[in-house]
């Protein structure tokens, strides 16, 4: 597998949301609007790239029996850094994402990539893997956020498309997240089957 494939597989073939179905908690929780989905996705992508890089560099120096606690500490450090930087420079986004930023620590995607890819590969492929998966995740969350924002509140990236009074509030709430995600996955599966 070359570097290009390491990078692109996260978009479609191994898309963490639509194909691997990982990280469902932020996927369903924060995608009430496109901007929230985008912000959450980019924050996760940032953590993924850095943690994959750090872990691929130190993996050989961490004894096998304590690799999980070791990885988690590294991931948690990056997440805390992201959390503090967002609070300082993007306060409004930080507020709307709330608890979900600290929860990136327990996102299966991050630990999953560390365990299954970064700990076995060199620095450059690991970073590309993290970037690809992270952008795939961002793409999925933004798409879901767009659908929920348009159907739920009649806006897209905060630009009003039609009056909020015609929006279906269920899409802003949790059940709408499940419905929209379900149909997106069905749609992606259909495409994957015909390909």
């Amino acid at each position: 597998m070359n570097n290009w494939q390491n990078f692109t597989k996260g978009f479609f073939k191994e898309n963490p949301t639509f194909v691997l179905l990982l990280g469902m908690c932020p996927t369903l929780g924060v995608t009430t609007s496109a901007i929230n989905g985008l912000g959450m996705g980019l924050a996760t992508a940032f953590v993924l790239v850095l943690s994959n890089l750090a872990i691929s560099l130190v993996a050989n120096s961490i004894p096998d029996k304590i690799r999980i606690p070791g990885f988690i500490v590294i991931i948690a450090a990056f997440v805390t850094v992201v959390d503090m930087c967002m609070a300082a420079y993007l306060p409004s986004l930080h507020e709307s994402l709330g608890l979900f930023i600290p929860l990136i620590v327990v996102n299966c995607i991050v630990l999953g990539r560390a365990e299954s890819f970064a700990s076995k590969n060199k620095a450059i492929p690991s970073m590309l893997d993290g970037l690809g998966i992270g952008l795939g995740f961002t793409m999925a969350l933004t798409l879901l956020g767009c659908i929920r924002e348009v159907l739920g509140s009649g806006k897209l990236f905060n630009i009003t498309l039609y009056s909020e009074n015609y929006g279906m509030i269920v899409f802003v709430l949790a059940p709408g997240a499940f419905i929209a995600l379900g149909y997106l996955i069905a749609f992606i599966n259909r495409i994957r089957k015909t390909n």
Binding site: N165, I169, V170, P175
Partner: peptide, 9 residues
């Protein structure tokens, strides 16, 4: 139920 949650007014 979908309508009840979506269009409560």
């Amino acid at each position: 139920v979908f309508l009840l949650i979506s269009f409560p007014v």
